[in-house]
């Protein structure tokens, strides 16, 4: 077993090459991407879950525990997404990164949560008591998450505080520009745009208003500009995980293949959904890489829509970071919605 272990040992992981750097362990790849943006060369970061895995169900192996045992900072979404992380943290025996310690960050804190259940019962499937935890598919939420992570980095590495804060500003600016586009930001200012978006009035405002004789919406760039033609388009998802994405681009999640969150699709439910989705003109079926794409594709065919294999994390299919993830997601959605027209 030892020989096999040595054979599998990646060259870069030997001999503590990054002993001087702040060791950060994140549950998910997109969190690791944000840490890299914030920490640069000052941090060494690792994601525990692969991009192809369902973030709800990761096997908490000793290897994950050993990684966390070395960490100065542990970052997770929290909000009940990574239930397995509790066992990893317990097995890691690293008091510095336990919840409540300076080395622990729950990135969801401060993010306005959607779909917070008023009734907690397994009769409704796998509910998340704190709300839907797939928060990172809205770039505005990621600004909050990045701020939480920067604060955590500063807590465990006060000397790097100025760098983390400067990188945070830069990252938030990049996120704003990538989401709204530079022209819209120049016109309305990011603070106002963000408030409009959060209040749910942005799309209506851009649609109804003109500036210098042209529709204001024409000023939208970035991901918003790309998705603008498909606003209010209806989609069906395999799992209830796109609520924040829908909010970010004014899409309508019409239903899910799963009859209840976490419950595999049943023929009866699919039949009902099929009739309703056809009548409603659903154009896109979104399916994360860890769900059954074949089933999503078959359903899409039946209702005359397009199925999209929608990545939810960087680290697969050439997607390198969070920006790449949102680029790819919006590109795939737009292509599918256009093709279904």
């Amino acid at each position: 077993m030892l020989a096999a272990a040595l054979a599998l040992l990646p060259a870069g992981s030997r001999a503590g090459l990054a002993a001087e750097r702040i060791q950060v362990v994140c549950t998910l790849p997109h969190l690791a991407s944000l840490v890299r943006e914030l920490g640069g060369d000052r941090v060494q970061v690792r994601a525990l879950a692969a991009a192809t895995l369902n973030p709800h169900y990761v096997v908490p192996t000793p290897g994950l525990m050993a990684a966390v045992a070395e960490a100065d900072l542990f970052v997770e979404i929290g909000a009940g997404l990574e239930l397995w992380s509790e066992r990893v943290l317990q097995g890691a025996r690293n008091p510095r990164v336990r919840p409540g310690q300076p080395g622990y960050v729950a990135a969801y804190q401060g993010v306005p949560m959607e779909q917070v259940p008023a009734v907690l019962s397994r009769a409704y499937g796998d509910l998340h008591p704190l709300g839907n935890p797939h928060i990172w598919l809205d770039p505005l939420n990621v600004k909050v998450m990045a701020a939480n992570i920067a604060t955590g980095l500063e807590r465990v590495d006060p000397e790097g505080g100025a760098l983390y804060q400067a990188n945070l500003q830069r990252l938030q600016r990049r996120l704003d520009e990538a989401y709204f586009g530079a022209e819209l930001i120049q016109l309305l200012g990011i603070e106002l745009l963000e408030r409009l978006r959060r209040s749910g009035r942005l799309f209506e405002f851009l649609e109804q208003r003109q500036f210098r004789g042209a529709p204001l919406a024409q000023r939208a760039g970035g991901w918003l500009g790309r998705m603008w033609p498909y606003r209010r388009s209806r989609f069906v998802a395999y799992h209830r995980q796109w609520v924040y994405f829908a909010r970010a681009f004014d899409l309508e999640e019409f239903g899910q293949l799963e009859p209840k969150p976490g419950i595999p699709p049943t023929p009866g439910h699919l039949e009902q959904l099929e009739a309703a989705a056809k009548a409603a003109g659903v154009r896109v079926v979104l399916c994360a890489p860890y769900h059954d794409f074949g089933q999503a594709e078959a359903f899409a065919r039946r209702i005359g829509a397009r199925a999209v294999r929608a990545p939810t994390e960087p680290g697969i299919e050439g997607i390198e970071d969070y920006f790449g993830l949102m680029d790819e997601l919006t590109r795939r959605y737009a292509a599918a919605a256009q093709a279904a027209d």
Binding site: E114, Q115, V116, P117, A118, V119, L120, Y124, L187, L188, G189, L192, R195, L196, R198, S199, G200, R201, E204, F205, R209, F211, L216, R240, V243, A246, R247, E253
Partner: peptide, 29 residues
């Protein structure tokens, strides 16, 4: 335009999405 945007942003947000009628809403237990 900005004044109008301010006005819009001040208006109360629409109710959060309720995937199943009556199921979702913030309750502190």
């Amino acid at each position: 335009l900005r004044a109008a945007a301010e006005e819009q942003a001040r208006e109360p947000a629409p109710p959060p999405e309720a995937a199943q009628p009556g199921l979702f809403g913030r309750v502190q237990q």
